[in-house]
C-alpha cells in the first residue's frame, strides 16, 4: 500500500477526532476550513515520523490539538491554500445538516467552548473515555494533574446542567 493510501485510510478512520477538535476550538465556519487544512497538512508532514509506540488516535489528537491551540491564538486571516477552497475536507451529509440537534448536546458544546484551552482538550478526551495515561501522553500533564482538572470540570459541568433542568 502506498504511503498516500495509508494516510488517507488513517484520516478516514479518525475523521471524527478532527471534526470534533476543530469544532471545539474554532467557531467561525471559514476559519474552520482553514484550520482543518492546516491540521491535515501537519499530519501529512509528520506522517513519516509517526511513532508506532502510540496509537494513531494519540498522534492525531496531539497534532490536532497543538495546531488548534496555536491557530486559535493567532486569529489571523490567511489565504486559501487550494483551488478547491469552497469545498471542505470533512463534509456533513445533507441529512446530517437538517437533523435536529439535541438541546443537551448544544449545551454541552457551549460548555466545552467556554473552557480554557487545556481544559477543553481534557474535556474532549474525557468524553472520548480516554484513560488518564493516554490523556497524559497527549497533553504532557501528569496523571495526577489530569485527575484534579477533570474532577473540577465535571463539577462545573454538573452545576451547569442542574441549573438548566
Amino acid at each position: 500500500m502506498q504511503k498516500e493510501e495509508v494516510f488517507l485510510s488513517v484520516i478516514e478512520s479518525h475523521k471524527g477526532i478532527l471534526y470534533k477538535v476543530v469544532n471545539a476550538y474554532c467557531k467561525d465556519e471559514e476559519n474552520r476550513k482553514d484550520l482543518i487544512q492546516e491540521i491535515i497538512f501537519q499530519l501529512w508532514k509528520s506522517f513519516d515520523r509517526y511513532n508506532n509506540q502510540y496509537k494513531y488516535s494519540t498522534w492525531i489528537y496531539r497534532i490536532a490539538l497543538n495546531v488548534s491551540i496555536s491557530f486559535y491564538r493567532r486569529e489571523s486571516v490567511r489565504q486559501p491554500v487550494t483551488s478547491f477552497y469552497n469545498e471542505q475536507v470533512l463534509q456533513v451529509t445533507e441529512e446530517g445538516q437538517h437533523s435536529e440537534k439535541d438541546e443537551h448536546l448544544q449545551q454541552l458544546h457551549q460548555f466545552i467552548a467556554e473552557l480554557r484551552d487545556m481544559d477543553r482538550a481534557l474535556m474532549l478526551l474525557y468524553l472520548e473515555e480516554k484513560s488518564y495515561k493516554e490523556m497524559a501522553e497527549i497533553t504532557g500533564l501528569s496523571e495526577t494533574n489530569i485527575g484534579t482538572r477533570i474532577g473540577r470540570i465535571k463539577m462545573v459541568l454538573k452545576q451547569k446542567f442542574s441549573k438548566t433542568q
Binding site: E4, I11, G16, Q37, F41, W44, F84, Q88, T93, G96
Partner: peptide, 24 residues
C-alpha cells in the same frame, strides 16, 4: 451519528497532500 454523516472529501485531501507545500 457523526460516523454516518461525516464524509471525507478524498479528492480534496489528495490535492492537499500532493500540492500544498507550506504551513502557517
Amino acid at each position: 451519528l457523526m460516523e454516518k454523516q461525516l464524509v471525507v472529501n478524498k479528492r480534496l485531501l489528495n490535492e492537499m497532500i500532493r500540492y500544498r507545500t507550506s504551513s502557517s
